[in-house]
Design a protein around this nucleic acid. Structure first.
Lengths: 221, 221
DNA sequence: ATTATCTATAGATCTATAGATAATGC
DNA sequence: ATTATCTATAGATCTATAGATAATGC
């Protein structure tokens, strides 16, 4: 039966019957992640991807229906990881007794470290979102989930905030942090003076800036 | 003589002898700027660009040697405007007697407004820089020029700053502002709560944040 | 008479397929 | 016996050119 050649929920990848399958599929995903991030989706040809994965173009099309299917599979892997990481990191129980400055500091550190580990993933996901509406709406949902999670951690501590409009101030800070983290890890458009400083300095000044703006106490330690 | 078909200093564009030439060339640049910004360089085909400019592919190749030449010409137009704007805006005489908060506020406002006027230019220039090393180094030079200009305006007013390391703090603030302006105008990855606020609110909170961090007085009016 | 534009298409490049060959595991 | 891989190539798309036609301005 032709129609079940592709798995049901992930209808873009063939369900392999041999061990080789999984390995080849993973290698193709890794190769695509790197090449998409570096050259963009259109800039990475199937020949490039197959070569980087150490297999042939024919082998690729045995596993994935087409280039687009690879994009979906790649995003699927990213989304799963992203959701899991956030579910753990943003669990309110985890932050029992913590103050705003501690949460912000940890948020900045963890975000930077996560993004650095797999530099290709986020850029690939973002670029996919630009082309594939289905992926775009999923990306937005994931980011909104993270945004809501951290927002509520901070909102629950509004009484620490000296800024006259705590809710507005929190929204501003979240945008500010998101923007700066993205720039530092993914799109350092130019080697500015501060970009060349070590991460520790970036953490310190970022937290300092947020605390000064919100008018909350600096981190405890 | 074949070699002088292209003008000497801008060796990628033909020097037109009729009025039509200038018009067609300008229309092609405008079309390319929009399409490059929207679909990326590879995503915009010569057929698209010619159609958007209201001429044929053949007409395009009469004026520009190839697609790459169009990129250089486009960047040239951007660079000229960018440099002129900055030379005026960052003239120390213009800021005689101004305080840090006033300079920062004006910088944010002018940057946002300039970028909004021609939304395609910066994105096109940035993407060109990714592919063309010659353009990349020129982009870096332009940005460094702007960075130095505003840095010196602020450094000259170091005595207003309460932050313990004024030079470091200025570097941090410039990165922060650059990142936030870019995100707001060019790469609003997702419709966050704060992104939907009007520009005035963005200006106000941004300036407030910078003043709190630097420990300087708020803007005068 | 020169300059600019158009149509049609050659040549290059990339995606995806067809058909043959090799490896796996019951 | 089935599954996975490879080589070779058809078909689509895009850049750039060739040659013919139209507009400009001396």
């Amino acid at each position: 039966m032709q129609s079940s050649q592709w798995t049901s929920d992930l209808h873009w990848v063939r369900e392999g019957k041999q061990d080789r399958s999984r390995k080849t599929q993973a290698k193709l995903l890794d190769a695509a992640e790197d090449l998409f991030a570096e050259h963009g989706i259109d800039g990475a040809t199937m020949a490039d991807i197959a070569a980087a994965a150490g297999c042939s173009i024919g082998a690729f099309y045995h596993h994935y229906r087409d280039k687009r299917a690879l994009q979906f599979a790649l995003f699927d892997r990213y989304a799963t990881m992203f959701e899991k990481t956030n579910r753990i990191a943003l669990d309110p129980a985890r932050w029992e007794g913590a103050r705003i400055a501690d949460i912000v500091q940890s948020y900045v550190q963890v975000s930077i470290e996560n993004d650095r580990m797999r530099p290709g993933q986020r850029r690939a996901a973002t670029e996919l979102g630009r082309v594939e509406p289905e992926i775009r709406s999923h990306v937005l949902k994931l980011r909104a989930m993270m945004d809501t999670g951290i927002r509520e951690l901070l909102l629950a501590r509004s009484d620490e905030i000296g800024h006259s409009d705590p809710e507005l101030a929190i929204s501003f800070v979240l945008d500010q942090l998101g923007s700066m983290i993205r720039t530092r890890v993914h799109e350092p458009e130019m080697p500015t003076r501060f970009a060349s400083q070590p991460d520790e300095q970036f953490f310190a000044e970022t937290v300092r800036s947020v605390c000064a703006y919100l008018q909350v106490d600096p981190p405890s330690h």
